[in-house]
Design a binder for these strands. Sequence first.
DNA 1: GCCAACGTTGGC
DNA 2: GCCAACGTTGGC
Length: 152
Amino acid sequence: MRYWLVKSEPSTYSIHDFEEEKVAIWDGVRNYQARNFLMQMEPGDLVLFYHSNAKPPGVVGLARVRRARVVDPTQFDPDSPYYDPKSNLDRPRWITAELEHVETFPQMVPLSELRERFSPEELILLRRGNRLSVVPVPEAVFKEIVRLAHEA
DNA sequence: GCCAACGTTGGC
DNA sequence: GCCAACGTTGGC
């Protein structure tokens, strides 16, 4: 059982979109390091949902891995912005996971608070220049973030 | 809107 | 294989 954080721009796909849809294939990730993390996800893993490019940016909800190592269908769709002509059906290049919505937090945990409470060493998200849209989160950090999201 | 950081592309 | 140019991410 592992813990993760995924980023999404709310203007593209927000926690509210996810709450309505309930289940989503986490498609469109086109970075090998992020993909390698996606491929390590297992059913039952818990995933923090982070709004990037938002005002303010921060952790806004919780998801759970429903299916592991799902082929990202958008890589084969010429009409998709995520189409990858170099991928092929026999050896798909982009593998992801299917997530289910667990909770939209009663209060978001903004990036500024994450910076106050955690170090860049323990939370990859905080490392300078980090652009990975999928990162692992240590259990203790995960639990603390969930606690903060429910604090009165 | 700015710009630092980073990834990718393509000429050589 | 190197690396300059370019594109993207994402906080501010």
